[in-house]
């Protein structure tokens, strides 16, 4: 009877008992206030409309309908395609690079030097860093001059700039460090004795890589994917400067709407970005369920 009463009556509210509970509570409140609430407000704006640069607060679905009619949905698909492709290429190159840096490179000085070189581009404004490539990839740029001058091609290659290639290339350079560093950190934490033991027990290099290193590096790989994919979905500078209007991605579409003070469209597009990210994150978690826990992304903090 007492149990039944306890089950039917609401659990009495109690103050958090430990510092961790207090911190978690405050963090959640702050997170909801700073992250969730603004996102909800942004989404709400997508259900209003604009007239003469002023918002009309009558709920409508016209903004969402126009997303489909004006081809902005194509931009969403294209942005996802770019983000997935570039992230895949990043991880493909970043993993062997990080493996060499963590386990192959025996000189601490060289390692420090490489890490510094990877970090240095972040000290320079992204626009300045990217715009330089125009002079290199353009029809009268360095590469085309070399190619034409050496007789390898008859006329300049126009696809080097203002193309899918140039945008992907720019993105690859910009986000390579964010793919490398998480993988490098987890690989650095793998005990060398484990690798030696694997070898000692007769495993080939490939088997050691597959059964020892890859599973242990998985938190870093997933971290690399997340830290690369998420900003790529909102990438704006690379398509702007290297796409030259031929590669229209979500960031530019949002910018264009904001330029015209069309907040509902910008809000709808932002909502789409967030929706896509949440969806892909769920897919990632579900596909890795049983083999990998997202909490282990931060296991290095426990050591």
């Amino acid at each position: 009877m007492a149990t039944a009463t306890a089950l039917s009556s609401p659990r009495p509210w109690r103050l958090p008992g430990t510092a961790t509970q207090w911190f978690t509570g405050w963090f959640l409140v702050a997170w909801i206030g700073v992250v969730v609430l603004p996102l909800l407000i942004i989404s709400a704006f997508s259900f209003f409309s604009m007239r003469q640069y002023q918002i009309v607060y009558d709920p409508t679905l016209s903004t969402w309908v126009s997303l489909a009619e004006t081809g902005r949905w194509v931009v969403v698909l294209r942005t996802i395609r770019f983000a997935v492709t570039v992230t895949f290429l990043e991880i493909l190159v970043a993993f062997p690079f990080a493996l060499w840096l963590a386990k192959g490179c025996r000189s601490p000085a060289v390692r420090a030097c490489v890490i510094t070189l990877l970090t240095i581009p972040f000290f320079i404004d992204a626009s300045s860093r990217i715009i330089v490539w125009r002079s290199i990839l353009g029809t009268n740029g360095v590469i085309n001059n070399l190619l034409v001058g050496s007789g390898l091609v008859d006329k300049p290659l126009t696809w080097l700039l203002y193309s899918d290639f140039s945008v992907s290339f720019g993105m690859f350079g910009s986000y390579f460090p964010t793919a490398v560093f998480p993988i490098f950190l987890t690989l650095s934490l793998i005990d060398d004795d484990l690798v030696k033991a694997s070898s000692g027990l007769g495993a080939s290099r490939l088997q050691t890589l597959r059964y020892i290193i890859l599973p242990l590096a998985m938190p870093g790989i997933v971290g690399g994917v997340v830290f690369t994919f998420v900003p790529l979905m909102a990438a704006w500078i690379e398509p702007q400067l290297l796409g030259g209007g031929q590669v229209n991605l979500l960031g530019q579409s949002i910018q264009s709407a904001l330029t015209n003070l069309n907040y509902p469209i910008a809000a709808a597009l932002s909502t789409v970005v967030i929706g896509v990210l949440v969806l892909l994150l769920v897919v990632l978690i579900v596909s890795l369920r049983g083999r990998f826990s997202m909490a282990s992304l931060f296991q290095s903090l426990d050591r």
């Binding site: 604009m50 003469q52 640069y53 126009s66 009619e69 004006t70 081809g71 902005r72 194509v74 931009v75 294209r78 209007g245 229209n248 530019q252 579409s253 264009s256 709407a257 015209n260 069309n262 469209i265």
Partner: peptide, 19 residues
């Protein structure tokens, strides 16, 4: 710059940019 149909023009222009 403040054309009454600016919204429509911007929306259509996106089709060009996306093409």
């Amino acid at each position: 710059p403040t054309a009454p149909n600016a919204d429509v023009m911007e929306q259509e222009w996106q089709r060009f940019l996306s093409a």
